[in-house]
Design a protein around this nucleic acid. Structure first.
Length: 271
DNA sequence: CCGGACGCCTGTCGGC
DNA sequence: TGCCGACAGGCGTCCG
């Protein structure tokens, strides 16, 4: 489900409710997520105050007085802040019960999400240690993509979805950014020149920023912390629009599988 | 090192 | 109407 804009939306939604709150206890109704949630986490977080919330890639970081919780929403995860006595639904796996009568509740039907405990420094955690730059940071630009892609034969779409290259660009926004940059998703990454990478880096920043401003993209189960959907779906130009006219030139959008993921592009605008 | 395939899960949808 | 396969926003791991 969530790519960077959806995780950022979740962060902004929950942060005001969680900052400086104390965690009374962790309630795990289902520990078998992408990785099992160790029972030892319960005692470590109980009683700790949440000092800050942050995002790294598609991971949410809950920084506690000592150590951090790392939360990933996988394909179908979503977060709500609710009265702690709200009856849980069938896929409401984890609650963090707060000291104000509310809880942070993780719902994740497919259980591809995960929850980890990390001793400080959190950035040294194995899941975070080898990640590429944030796409909205100055370190990420066309020159960086151009330099890193030399000699790479993988399709450019696969390349920009590789979290070692740049984080947070998932299947929706990869297709959208490549359309805006006029680059065919199947083109080998190493055979794209610098000016086109400058366009691509700019397009990635633009589309992610716009999606964050709209509260993310709701296709199926993604909802914001308050239960409302994100509204970027109506701004999508190619994703999920097979056969519909390209908004730029009217040519029917094509769909093709690249790296086991559905990819959408305009055969006329994208070369 | 690189690139491609696979698996982890449940829900939904389209075709027959 | 019902069944069945394909597919869905991610990503670590394995294999060649």
């Amino acid at each position: 489900m969530p790519e960077l804009p959806e995780v950022e939306t979740a962060l902004r939604g929950i942060a005001p409710h969680l900052a400086n709150r104390r965690i009374l206890r962790l309630v795990a109704r289902e520990r078998r997520l992408r990785w099992p949630v160790p029972e030892s986490v319960d005692a470590v977080v109980a009683g700790q105050r949440i000092t800050a919330l942050a995002r790294r890639a598609k991971y949410l970081l809950l920084e506690l007085e000592h150590g951090s919780l790392i939360l990933h929403l996988g394909m179908s995860g979503s977060l709500r802040v609710l009265p702690a006595d709200t009856p849980p639904g069938p896929h409401d796996h984890i609650d963090l019960v707060l000291d104000n009568g509310r809880c942070l509740r993780l719902r994740d039907p497919r259980r591809f999400g995960s929850l980890h405990w990390a001793e400080p420094p959190v950035e040294a955690h194995p899941l975070l240690a080898s990640l590429g730059p944030e796409p909205l940071s100055p370190a990420f630009d066309g020159a960086y993509l151009h330099r890193l892609s030399r000699g790479r034969r993988a399709p450019v779409k696969t390349f920009i979805m590789d979290s070692h290259v740049v984080v947070g660009v998932g299947n929706i926004y990869a297709s959208e950014a490549l359309h805006r940059a006029g680059i065919h998703p199947h083109r080998p990454a190493g055979r794209i020149a610098l000016p086109r990478y400058q366009r691509l880096a700019a397009a990635i920043k633009t589309v992610l920023t716009a999606a964050i401003a709209e509260g993310g993209t709701s296709l199926r189960d993604f909802v914001q912390e308050d239960g409302n959907p994100g509204y970027f779906a109506r701004a999508l130009r190619v994703y999920g629009r097979t056969g519909l006219p390209c908004p730029t030139c009217g040519t029917p959008i094509r769909q093709q599988r690249i790296g086991q993921r559905s990819s959408f592009y305009c055969p006329r605008c994208q070369r």
